[in-house]
Simulated assay, not measured.
Amino acid sequence: MNARRGTEDNPETVGDKIGGLIKELVIVVVGALVIAFLIRTFLGQMFLIPSGSMEHTLNVNDRIAVQKVTHFERGDIVVFQDPDHWLGDEPQAPERSPIGKALEFIGVLPNTSSEYLVKRVIGMPGDHVKCCDSEGRITVNGQPLDERSYLYSQDGQQSKPSDQPFDVVVPRDRLWVMGDHRDDSADSRCHLRDQTADGTSMSAFVPKDDVVGPVFAIVAPFSRATWIHIPKTFENVPDPKAPAPAAPVIRSHNDACG
């Protein structure tokens, strides 16, 4: 019977110490990767912002954290799968190396896939969303939104809530979404004329099932790290007066899109 390593009769060698250290390091790394994968799968996920459609709430190359275990509401910023080729020619993040893709899959690195978009939820199922009232504001169920806290602004000039008029009722299990940089966001407004296989304009409305979850924080770069909250203006929006229709109600819209 061999004596146990590290005893007086069988002292531990330098090689044994290095081997033990490597073994412990491998266990720690593998354990951390497993935890990261489980968090990515069930709790949350990181994404990389590739375009300016949400400026300056979210800027290009911001790393954002998305929650998967909570519901979302009007005013939330959500990440969702591209519902119907919305991305078009929007800039995409550079492709990762094989190692980078593996770390992205596990959840250590943020997701850079071109299959996802990020926008703000303006209308929930059944909401009547209209642009604009006499003061140029978007209204939801008759309640005007004060969007000055998050709309894109540069050199003291803030973007309008929308240059394109529209008047819609959001269908069942769908969302109306818009970017905070309204002049640089190909959002729900831009797809009202898109026809789906059943001949409706469902393409303008994001399926709730395609939503990964709401953004709850900017995690990098460190200088921009912050929590993300729903703007207070959405607290005043009443519930819709009628159940959400099966198909969208589109009373008016404009072909132009910024």
Score class of each variant (00 low, 15 high):
R148C: 10
V170A: 04
Y152E: 11
D173L: 06
D146N: 12
D167W: 03
S185C: 12
P171M: 08
Q164F: 09
S159E: 15
F166M: 02
P165G: 05
R172H: 09
D187R: 03
Y150P: 13
A186Q: 01
R189C: 07
R182D: 06
E147T: 05
D180V: 13
C190Q: 00
W176R: 09
D155S: 05
R189A: 14
P161I: 13
D187S: 10
S149C: 09
G156I: 06
D163E: 13
S159I: 15
F166D: 00
Q158N: 08
H191W: 00
V170G: 06
D187A: 05
V170M: 04
D155L: 03
S153V: 03
S162G: 14
Y152M: 11
H191G: 01
Q158V: 03
D155I: 07
G179Y: 08
W176E: 04
S159F: 15
V177N: 10
R189Y: 10
S153I: 03
S185L: 09
D184I: 01
V170P: 02
D173M: 07
S162H: 09
G179S: 12
P171Y: 07
V168N: 02
R189E: 06
V169C: 04
R182T: 15
D187E: 10
S162E: 11
C190T: 00
R174N: 11
W176K: 07
F166A: 02
W176N: 00
D184Y: 03
S162N: 10
H191T: 01
L175C: 07
Y150V: 04
C190M: 07
L175V: 09
Q157R: 14
L151A: 06
S185G: 04
D167G: 04
R189Q: 14
V168M: 01
G179E: 10
D183A: 10
E147W: 08
C190I: 00
Y152C: 05
P161E: 14
R182E: 13
